[in-house]
Structures are given as structure tokens and as C-alpha cells.
């Protein structure tokens, strides 16, 4: 054997996210084709994603459907159903994020045909790191930050907060007990992400929710 032929280099040049991105494109086509506007909601565990979605469910009713991503249990889907919307639970069985394939699978189980359906909200697994690299096929990516978490989280998780379209600051009913500086959080988020829109809400008291829901509604009925 001669030396030149023993080393073999094979060119691959493939984006590691290409499979996810193909499913994301499929999801976008499927949902877009039915005139359904899609949200991807990302936050740390307990920031209030399900609480915000429950409040949205009361505003939108059967115009909205929800995909819930959790490592285990159907609990969040049950909360959404109780609030009046169709919900599908993805149990990731350990994975710390949703990917577009899992969402594609969920969509195949849901009823996407009612004329009333205009909005699909996807609650990602509670995590500020892993979901940020996965496009699910959403039209709008929403980052949720709750005031007890602290206003320093935005610069600590730049990969997420630079990728969102909308920042929702939740649990504003607790603001007087905490030293969370809303202006600082907004400034820091804008520095990472100049086009971000910001809403301050309390899913508990409903403060700011009507304005936020109205804004979402304008995206598909405007």
C-alpha cells in the first residue's frame, strides 16, 4: 500500500440543524397554508408560560390551540384544556427542548381544520439555553422573563434573548417586592436585539394581558 491512498478525506459540508430546519419549513408551510399564526414561547421553568397561555386561552377561546412541551406529565395540557382550548402534550422524555420534528408529529395528531382556528401557541420546555437553537416553524418567538428571576438574565442568556421577536416580562404584580429594573432589562434586551418588542404583564392579575393579546391578534387579523 502506498501512503497517498490511505488517508481519505470526505467532504460533508452539512449544517447540523438542516434536518430540524426542513421540518420547521414543513410546519411553516402546513400552518401558514391553513392561515394559522404560530408562536414559540420560551422561558426558564416556572416563569409563567402556562399561566400566560391560560390567560390567552380565555381571550382567544377556540381560535387558539396549544402544543405543550414538557419533559414529563400532561399537567400543562390539562390546564389549557380547562381554560377552553385544544391542547396537545409532547412529553420529551428527557430532552431539554422541542425540535421541529416533535412539533410536526404533534400537528399530525391535532385538529387543524376548524375555521375558527387562527393561532397555534407552542410552549417550549422550560429552559433558557437549549430551545434557542431550534426553529420550530414559528412566526413569532416570544421570550418570557419573570421579575423574580432578576433583570440580569437577559445578558446571561444572550443566545435566546438575541433570537426573540417579543419579550414578555411577567409577574409584574410582584415588582414592588423586588429590585428588578424593568428599564434596564429592556435596554439590555434592545442592545442584543434592536427590533425586540416588549410587554409587561401579570398572568395572575391580568394586568397588561389584554394589550398583549390584542397585539398578537393584530398579527393575523390585521
Amino acid at each position: 500500500m502506498c501512503d497517498e491512498v490511505t488517508e481519505q478525506k470526505v467532504d460533508i459540508t452539512t449544517s447540523v440543524m438542516s434536518k430540524n430546519d426542513r421540518f420547521a419549513a414543513d410546519n411553516r408551510e402546513l400552518l401558514g397554508g391553513k392561515g394559522i399564526y404560530t408562536l414559540n414561547l420560551i422561558s426558564s421553568p416556572g416563569a409563567g408560560k402556562t399561566a400566560v397561555l391560560e390567560s390567552m386561552a380565555r381571550f382567544f377561546g377556540p381560535r387558539m390551540a396549544v402544543i405543550e412541551g414538557d419533559i414529563q406529565t400532561r399537567r400543562d395540557a390539562e390546564r389549557i384544556e380547562k381554560a377552553g382550548c385544544q391542547a396537545w402534550q409532547i412529553e420529551t422524555g428527557g430532552a431539554c427542548h422541542l425540535d421541529a420534528h416533535a412539533v410536526n408529529h404533534a400537528l399530525s395528531h391535532m385538529n387543524l381544520d376548524p375555521d375558527s382556528l387562527q393561532l397555534m401557541a407552542i410552549e417550549n420546555v422550560g429552559n433558557l439555553i437549549c430551545p434557542s437553537g431550534y426553529d420550530l416553524g414559528e412566526d413569532m418567538r416570544i421570550g418570557l422573563l419573570s421579575v423574580p428571576e432578576g433583570d440580569d438574565k437577559i445578558l446571561k442568556y444572550p443566545s435566546l434573548f438575541s433570537s426573540i421577536n417579543v419579550l414578555v416580562i411577567n409577574k409584574m404584580d410582584l415588582i414592588s417586592h423586588l429590585d428588578f429594573d424593568v428599564d434596564r432589562a429592556i435596554d439590555e434586551c434592545r442592545s442584543l436585539n434592536p427590533d425586540v418588542l416588549v410587554f409587561t404583564v401579570s398572568a395572575k392579575t391580568g394586568e397588561g394581558m389584554e394589550e398583549f393579546c390584542g397585539f398578537v391578534e393584530n398579527q393575523f387579523s390585521g
Binding site: M1, V5, T6, E7, Q8, K9, V10, D11, I12, T13, T14, S15, V16, M17, G133, S162, R190, S191, L192, P194
Partner: peptide, 25 residues
């Protein structure tokens, strides 16, 4: 010194190539 900016690139993640062990070709 400003950190207000727009991202043009920097999120890429690709498998570029592999090199096979000798005697595997």
C-alpha cells in the same frame, strides 16, 4: 464601544468533512 448591533453571522454549526482511518477506503 456600543453593544447595540445587528448580527450578520455567527450562529453556524456545520459538519465540514471527515477523515477515514487508514485501511478503511
Amino acid at each position: 464601544g456600543s453593544i447595540s448591533r445587528r448580527i450578520l453571522s455567527g450562529r453556524e454549526f456545520t459538519v465540514d468533512s471527515v477523515e477515514l482511518e487508514e485501511g478503511n477506503d
